[in-house]
């Protein structure tokens, strides 16, 4: 089994509002996969269908070989889930809660080793509702991986993080993936997806508009480049998908150096923004 998640023609409608309009996805085992998109694109809905928390309207979904809508406890034991904005178990102690969650699994991690790996050893005896936002988030991830899941879902894990906290969080996710865990992460931050993911799918308005490795993605979403030069004392602008060819043709025409030649390729971020704009 090399596929952890397989989705075909996934549709979700709330009343007349279509949130997902035929999503296809394949997530390989052991990869970090990000679902990237602006707010309201349907990322959370998608991930919650995969987690078995929502019933889909149509389509085929397989997560670790089972349909999430019918997944039992044995299936659930192989998943780790980190949702947005958890404020639960505020009265519990940090270590107490980790140990409690571990009791649900056959081979839980050691709570103390996990606390150390998460950098929460000093907070072990603290009440959960006294943790800072970043600490709370790391505890949430800790709770999600307590049972050594094969597949970990992270829904917008770094929202509200400062850059330092974000970097630490990325290192944590990379370590988890290095241990062989498959990670599905949603984000609306392109830089995060680019840095962290082996592969990314861009979800806009309930449809996947591009999917692949960062390089493949850059190719797939590449907006047209601009070539500028001076001719007859005026600036000329050419918008083209192949700026290299355009420059070569200009050199041929001028029979030498082209005055004021500029080639401007859009950044990945500009591509992404234009992509969101195009689909919207």
């Amino acid at each position: 089994m090399s596929t952890a998640v397989s989705v075909r023609g996934l549709r979700m409608a709330y009343g007349t509002a279509e949130v997902l309009r035929g999503v296809d996805l394949d997530i390989r085992r052991g990869e970090i996969f990000t679902l990237l998109g602006p707010n309201g694109a349907g990322k959370t809905t998608t991930i919650e269908i995969l987690e078995g928390f929502r019933n889909r309207s149509a389509g085929e979904v397989s997560v670790l070989g089972a349909d999430p809508a019918r997944g039992g406890d044995a299936w659930r034991a192989r998943l780790g889930i980190v949702l947005q904005n958890w404020r639960d178990h505020g009265r519990w102690g940090v270590r107490e809660l980790l140990a409690h969650v571990g009791e649900f699994y056959d081979r839980p991690r050691d709570p103390d080793e996990l606390l150390a790996a998460l950098g929460l050893t000093e907070q072990a005896a603290q009440r959960v509702n006294r943790l800072s936002g970043g600490q709370r988030r790391r505890l949430d991830v800790g709770l999600g991986i307590m049972g050594r899941p094969e597949l970990l879902f992270l829904d917008e894990p770094t929202t509200g993080f400062d850059p330092e906290a974000r970097r630490e969080f990325h290192l944590l996710v990379e370590r988890l993936a290095a241990d062989g865990m498959t990670v599905l992460l949603t984000t609306h931050d392109l830089a995060e997806a680019e840095k962290l993911a082996h592969r990314t799918a861009i979800l806009v308005r309930g449809e996947i508009v591009a999917c692949g490795s960062p390089a493949e993605l850059a190719d797939a979403v590449r907006a047209e480049s601009q070539v500028r030069w001076l001719e007859d004392g005026r600036e000329r602008v050419l918008t083209t998908a192949d700026p290299s060819r355009a420059a070569w043709e200009l050199h041929e025409r001028f029979g030498g150096p082209v005055p004021g030649l500029q080639v401007r390729r859009p950044s990945l971020e500009e591509n992404y923004l234009s992509l969101i704009g195009r689909a919207a």
């Binding site: 080793e113 150390a116 000093e122 050594r148 630490e168 865990m181």
Partner: peptide, 15 residues
């Protein structure tokens, strides 16, 4: 604390 632990692997490995 967190940065110093980055070189260690997580306890136990994945399932």
């Amino acid at each position: 604390t967190t940065t110093t632990t980055t070189t260690t692997t997580l306890p136990g490995g994945a399932a």
